[in-house]
Design a protein around this nucleic acid. Sequence first.
DNA 1: AGTTAGTTATGAATCGTTTCAAGCTTAAGT
DNA 2: ACTTAAGCTTGAAACGATTCATAACTAACT
Lengths: 335, 335
Amino acid sequence: MAASVRDVAVAAAVSVGTVSNVLNRPEKVAPATVERVMAAINELGFVRNDAARQLRAGRSRSIGMIVLDAGNPFFAAVARGAEERADEDHLSVLLGNSDEDVDRESAYLDLFREQRVNGVLITPASSATANLERLRTAGIPVVLVDHEIADTSFCSVSVDDVEGGHLAAAHLLQQGRRRLMFVGGPSSIAQVTNRLEGARRAVSEVSGATLEVIEMPALTVLNGRAAGEAIVAREASLRPDAVFAANDLLAVGLVQGLRIFGGLRVPEDIALIGYDDIDFASAAVVPLSSVRQPAEEIGHTAVELLLKTIADPEGDYERRVRFRPELVVRESSSV
Amino acid sequence: MAASVRDVAVAAAVSVGTVSNVLNRPEKVAPATVERVMAAINELGFVRNDAARQLRAGRSRSIGMIVLDAGNPFFAAVARGAEERADEDHLSVLLGNSDEDVDRESAYLDLFREQRVNGVLITPASSATANLERLRTAGIPVVLVDHEIADTSFCSVSVDDVEGGHLAAAHLLQQGRRRLMFVGGPSSIAQVTNRLEGARRAVSEVSGATLEVIEMPALTVLNGRAAGEAIVAREASLRPDAVFAANDLLAVGLVQGLRIFGGLRVPEDIALIGYDDIDFASAAVVPLSSVRQPAEEIGHTAVELLLKTIADPEGDYERRVRFRPELVVRESSSV
DNA sequence: AGTTAGTTATGAATCGTTTCAAGCTTAAGT
DNA sequence: ACTTAAGCTTGAAACGATTCATAACTAACT
């Protein structure tokens, strides 16, 4: 069907080797020949077959990336940062969505291995390291994104979630709130448990302060709304006076849920703070306080680190890049 | 480096053909042999080389998709719908971001051709059909997404943007507003011009109503904010009393921009309506009126149509699926 | 014993690109 | 005229999975 180098070679009356040279090292070919070959290429509408090229090369020109939720603007931004950096090295990024599910994660990793990707960027869906170990034994370079594990041999680019959680909770406490609630996601996700740990620490530093924890099945707007409605449905005395949501999606949903049926006011009745500082946070019904993470820079740095690891697995460079979270105060948490 | 079928064959003491059969038609192989081969596969950590498989097969197991902005929740939802449907047929979706730029679009299309994708879903960045014609001559099946062109031989899945624009503007007029403004994006984008055309039509039906048009370089939150600030900066008599934004991202930004420095109130001073009804619309500072499009269903249907086209290019089925937009009224447009 | 049908396994050929040692041509130098 | 070098081009080999015609073997018949 489609034209091959052989067809081009015949049309231009040269050998296949020369066609390949025109494609890959035109400076090694006589100008007149280049022109003739290019003419044949255009005439036949020849397009390189990447599968054959990869087969010969033994590896692909792509890296795999798995995020928890591509619909979350935070991860969308991280992915964009990664793509931009990868593009500089003429690599493309295969993006997969685990939806916080380990099996989907495994499925994508299998796909990536079949594709012979150069490396993998991953925000693991679970603290179980089985999938990571498998990558390691397969000899595939890995960089953990927005996640860090005890095993220091794994490269990672992360933000200190414990500190971020502390920042958020301490801020609520400083506003005079004492009955805090943490609305999180599955405790299998490290970000969630770390942010919670930071919050716990902050609460323990203030006498009389309490922290209730509610676990939702996923970090989505819908779950946030459900949590909000559940709070509204409670007796007034059982309601928290401040809520720390594990991410902005939950927080946005919470605002909706809390206000439903003319329920509770934010921040008067309940102060609220989210996490990630996505674009929409500042545009929410009540502009949302949040904890900012440098999303694009994380993606950028992750690819950078991956490339280093590929080039020199044993090299002398920092294997764990850590950014610091930043508190962003808006109306949702301050009267 | 990595194990190949040949290595597996040696380890299991069978021929390479048998290994391939175990992989692809295990029912044709004696159970005992299957077991032996599987053991060898696990032992060696063998993973199929997809490049070799594709080379032999002559085509890939993927389809290409190009959207205007993957960070826009509307397109994220369309892409998700497409992926879900593709997954049912064991196809993966290569997602590319044109950022409304024709050159980036071309670059992705080249990449897709090298990958020998089975077909392409595309929301064109321009009304110029050069890229589409190139796909056609290359014999690559195409389905236009959220976009329709005069040439009826191209398949498309779209929503009637003229009707949507009419719905939005008519609604604003019905609220008693007369000095309308349309905040759009580059006029090269068909959605923008169609929505504007619908709005123009609605305005022409009401005597005394006017429509001012402002063109922003892209349909983003940031541009919306800029437009909002520009409106605030005007003399009061020159301000519109209602704004129709070409999408929700612009609208969200407009809310921010209009309210900046305690500027204008929405909807009292200026009524506002967006387009797409993304999740965040209902959670905006002022819950946003919008025009809803069935995003996931669009993605789903687009893949469905693409598969039909691939299976039978000449078949007897509807080549242009058209959904109808739906007005969603919230606080931003009604007092 | 001989034929047939059925089941299972084989291995060479193939896909399209890249690589690289070897060959050819021309120009320059002695 | 002869050598050397430099510049271009060649074509076979290789990458790894799949296919398919063919072979080998069994079992079940006459």
